[in-house]
Amino acid sequence: MTRFFRIYWTFASNQIKSNFVYKGRFYLFIIRKFLGMFIYYYLWMAVYAGTSSGSIGGFTRGEMVLYVFLSYTVSDIVMVGISSEIGKDVLDGSVALNLVKPVNYRLYLTFQSLGVMIYRVVVPSVFIWIGLEIYKVTELGMPVIRPLSLLCFLVSMLLSFFVYVFFDYCFGMLAFVTTYIFGMNIMKNAALNLLSGKLAPVSFFPPVIQEIFSFLPFTAMTYVPVMIYLGKYPGAEVLGQLGKQAFWAVALYLAGSLLWKKIEKRIVVLGG
């Protein structure tokens, strides 16, 4: 087990190091994140300015501020795509090099993503969270998050990561069939922004749609951890939601294994 981690951890750590290589990219990345979050923030504030009740879909204006920044940072951390990596590997044929090593391709990709995830927790999400917590206590007069809730939030986020990565692995298998998945990836991201709760809380949708969503894995990607942080789930339901996330992680993992078995036989290496 330790050997396992020593092997795969090197992929994560090298990925983290790679993220610091280009200075310009490093700073632009942070600026882009803030830009995205604030556009989103002002949009929602305009929406709230137009309502008289001060609450939409069970969210007060203050909670919406928290939701905006949280969902943005969480989805940024959790949704580290591996399908684009698979797509690139397939298109230029470098998948060959990954297959001649005594390494599991999916775990290799997963740990690379884990590296990116860890990097993104530090740059810059954790600082935004601290800022949010201060805002929450001073401006909204809400209590500081309890250690147990914080723990549940972190666990839930880790589960979200696995749900997304294993989902994206299945999606990435398409690259072996269609060769080019760049366009489909854009479509997928657009759909996920809506389905995972990144753009708007799922509780904003009509009840029927919410019902449908509850049978899909997508809310397990962003919405659940954010709602846990906001304390929107009463006691026992938190465990239920975590269980659901775990279920999807396992189910998508198994689906991925099945797909790989089917596809392994028909791999084509492009580019000679």
Partner: peptide, 28 residues
């Protein structure tokens, strides 16, 4: 061991030595 002359298995963005530390772990 495999070498594809037209591709590289080296870690593109990092110092060369990092590639060897990764491979050292992979192959034990």
């Amino acid at each position: 061991g495999v070498v594809f002359g037209q591709r590289t298995q080296l870690w593109w963005d990092l110092p060369l030595s990092e590639t060897y530390t990764v491979l050292k772990e992979i192959y034990g």
